[in-house]
Design a protein around this nucleic acid. Structure first.
Lengths: 159, 159
DNA sequence: CGTACCGCTGAGCATATTGCCCAGCAGAAA
DNA sequence: TTTCTGCTGGGCAATATGCTCAGCGGTACG
């Protein structure tokens, strides 16, 4: 479950050069190919690596506006609201958080004007009591995992 | 910049079976290998596909707790606060949003107790005026892009 | 102390894929 | 008509993959 230094180096290498092959990886890391193969299999089957899906930029797809919405849900309407939000393509992510019936979702839109349409569609659903939205201006730290991987690998040093 | 149906099918296929090769993709899609190759190159150079980095599960790394923090920043301290937050491995993402000096970040921690340590480290910085945190309980819609890709591809139908 | 067990190594082999080339062809634009 | 662009289908050498194997050093356990 915990990862060691070699696992960490594999993950970092993979994050930096994702299209790299197993053979090339083994050369860079100075270990046998079978070892990298086995580590990768283990990382995937243990769930540390969930996949290698392409990271698609919504902006390049024509959706340059990102926003976060905080929703308050009427008691008992949770499942319905989830299904509703899941059916909206512009909802990229949804979490339920502490707080009475609170959800937060990440939205994208084609423009600020289009965001209004998206929000209307999102909150125009019975069961959503209240909604507040914050538009993203900058993204100083894009979603990342490498620093955490390095810390986790370092933590496992002193076994 | 906009994607067509073939691009959309490539992205969906790639999202479903990321380790698939160009040759196999061309077979599944019923087009020539060179075509898929060219489309992939274009998707990458145009920025639609940012990369194929491994999707690492923080929970499997030993960080099962996720939280969102909303920070209020003192005027003019933005750059310093950003640099500080970027230096904390548990900060996975950071956005600046509308609102007076507002930032939101995504945090992970080893436990609820550990979250306190992380928050202390995050907010224990001159320039952060106020902070509120919400712990994530469920993630009904994990970060996704396929529905948006399909919509974008469908929108380009009527050229 | 001896004996399993486990992970890593280094190697080999048949098969599949890649990167790169080419000529031909259809549709759109000029 | 002519030119351009994108897709096709093919071929080629080089490379990577999946799989197997025996050897070898640790560590755990009786």
């Amino acid at each position: 479950m915990a990862i060691d230094q070699l696992d960490g180096r594999i993950l970092v290498l993979l994050a930096r050069e994702p299209r790299i092959g197993v053979l090339e990886m083994s050369r860079r890391l100075g270990v046998a190919r079978g070892t990298v193969q086995a580590r990768l299999d283990r990382l995937q089957s243990s769930g540390v690596i969930q996949g290698f899906g392409p990271q698609v930029d919504p902006a390049a797809l024509g959706y340059p506006v990102t926003a976060f919405a905080t929703l308050q849900i009427r008691q008992g309407q949770g499942p319905d609201v989830r299904a509703h939000l899941a059916s909206v393509p512009e909802v990229l992510e949804l979490h339920t958080t502490t707080g009475t019936g609170d959800m937060r979702c990440r939205l994208v839109a084609r423009s600020n004007a289009d965001l209004q349409r998206v929000i209307d569609r999102v909150v125009g659903f019975d069961g959503i009591v209240r909604a507040s939205t914050a538009i993203v201006m900058e993204n100083p730290v894009p979603l990342r995992i490498i620093p955490l991987v390095e810390q986790a690998a370092a933590d496992s040093e002193g076994h």
